[in-house]
Design a binder for these strands. Sequence first.
DNA 1: CACCAGGTAGATC
DNA 2: GATCTACATGGT
Length: 242
Amino acid sequence: MLIVESSADEEPDRLEAFLRHYLDLNRDLPAILDAVDIDPFMHHSIETFWGMRILNQEVWECLASFILSQNNNVPRIKGIIRTLATRFGEEITLEDSVDYAFPTPQALADAGVETLYDCRLGYRAPYLWTVSSEIAAGVFDLEALKRLPYPEAKRELMRFKGIGEKVADCICLFSLGHVQALPIDVWVKRIIEQLYLKRQGSIREIRQFAEDYFGEYLGYAQQYLFHYARTVGLEDLLTTES
DNA sequence: CACCAGGTAGATC
DNA sequence: GATCTACATGGT
């Protein structure tokens, strides 16, 4: 959930600039889609979801959320995030409704690892606590991370215990604007195997194929196929031959 | 009661 | 490198 704070006397330019970045409107989407519209599967996915963009989400929230996502299901991920926000997030009041912001790194660091276990994070508790603490203490600098090119950003993220290749790529694609990143989860693996490889393949093979095949806008290509497979169905794509 | 869920770390061959 | 397994928790 995104909340944009703004007051009447604040320059509207700043809000517009923020939204343009958040919605990824600064990127030339038609050019990107044209570049990855290279086969019937992509063509059909693009036609169906024309206009879909990959949001540039807030880095810290994205990073923390994807640490929690590993080997976990979506409803429970949402539940845990809700719990963390309610317990450690700043209260936000809008007219007569109350909600809570995603907790700051400092708030989670202060909470302590034992308290995070209480929030049912399981073995992910120390992962999240360590990252929170390093960011809160200024040991790990998110602003510096934003300036890094894709390979370096990914490598820096993967230094943390609890951030592997998939989570690092999620952070790179969904919050750092690196559209060449490819998070390979079970779905992406299944999609590439069934549509293109026509056989099972290792993570390394999947990545190699996808990089060679889709090129620099790999992340966008992935997003269209992924969204199609998860909302319409992968079987549906398999039967599109033109 | 097994098996799974938007993976990862650590050990081993 | 490629492969195997434990890992917390809650749902089917």
